[in-house]
Design a binder for these strands. Structure first.
Lengths: 213, 213
DNA sequence: ATCTCAATTAAACGTATGTTTACTATAAGA
DNA sequence: TCTTATAGTAAACATACGTTTAATTGAGAT
């Protein structure tokens, strides 16, 4: 029976290897044989534990996206509670969105093997996969997030809020994507920025963008 | 022999179908059989005209990226010429980057079949493909672009310029990506924004982000 | 009319994919 | 000890992929 405490179960080895290979080679590009070889397990064990490659995708996203969305929601609710009757500032709303993602990326290797590297890529993976495995996690959150922006900046139209939210997504995810690729490119910074520094840079860029017109 | 004037040559039919299918299903996801069937040509004709699927990718990107980069450079140079001795404003630099892309997207169907939909996805396609087919087109431009930003905002450090440039890329490409997907999502605007409106929104968001700290 | 050569085609090739099967190993319960 | 259920495995399966082959077409040149 699965030994949940020890953390080196076959399921976890598969999930870890998959996360890394999906980020590197894409959802289609990483084959079952790539994955099981990297994980040091038998080829058939993926189908045994996850049913199919599709089930494996769902598990990979579920493992990281569920806690991430939870952390964002909690931060947003904390900011709203702290603000009392008035709406929290745009900066506070952006922080709720940005900080959990950057911290997740930083705690898990930061350079190479983070899940957020996969997130960056996921914005534009084959749409069918994203609609199936990623959007369901985002949808409950995005509504609350857009509402918070609308409250903080009451002059924005509904369409303005939609597009600015899109832009914020683009900033964060492409930023994290490039962060994970720093060692692959020649022209970038010599070393990655600190977590706090990066978070602040993202908050100020996105907040200024939202306030602009 | 290929009839260049008539524009309905086999090569063009293949390129058009490929552009659309790459955007929809990804570079790996769109098979040669998908492509040739959509183009109404024989399976083997891709290998005849482009040598391989890799050669087809190169041709697809070359056809759109070369003129796009040229247009951006010309706009940037025009802005620098117009500014005389002083550097052009951040807004002018952003416009040189953003306008050609949005206009390209708008002239080619705008909703569904544009190349920029493919560009949005390309930020995070399997890295090997992008390094091979996309980065070579961007590299000569990105240096000039970053230099223009640095001149317009002299207080920014070299690393600041790098990251802000990344953020601008994220805003534009994900914005265009969502633009092409408007009809697929439920919560977005009822109709797409006008070209000029969208360009201005992108310019103000990115310019404010760059000026922020 | 014949030749020529680029363009096109149907069919096959070899390989890689995700999945399934049938079998073995292991450890706890009665 | 025998049973049972879970976990793991080697091998085969059917399918889809990119590519290649060999044959055919069709229009312009001689």
């Amino acid at each position: 029976m699965g030994d949940k405490c020890c953390k080196h179960t076959t399921k976890d080895k598969i999930l870890d290897a998959t996360e890394k290979l999906f980020a590197e080679k894409g959802l289609d590009g990483a084959s079952m044989r790539d994955i099981t070889e990297a994980a040091g397990v038998n080829l058939a064990s993926v189908n045994y534990h996850f049913g199919s490659k599709d089930g494996l995708m769902a598990a990979v996203f579920q493992r990281r996206l569920a806690p991430l969305m939870k952390a964002r929601l909690e931060l947003l609710e904390a900011a709203e509670a702290a603000a009392g009757d008035s709406p929290p500032s745009i900066e506070a709303v952006m922080e709720a969105f940005i900080r959990p993602a950057v911290e997740d990326a930083s705690t898990r290797g930061y350079k190479n093997e983070s899940f957020l590297r996969l997130m960056g890529r996921c914005l534009s993976e084959p749409i069918a996969y994203i609609d199936k495995h990623v959007h369901p996690h985002f949808e409950p959150f995005i509504e609350r997030f857009q509402a918070a922006i609308a409250r903080a900046e009451p002059d924005l139209t509904h369409d303005d809020v939609f597009w600015k939210t899109c832009f914020v997504f683009g900033v964060l995810h492409h930023g994290l994507h490039m962060l994970s690729r720093l060692n692959c490119i020649t022209f970038g910074p010599d070393e990655p920025p600190g977590v706090e520094e990066f978070v602040q840079q993202l908050i100020s860029f996105t907040s200024a963008g939202i306030k602009s017109r």
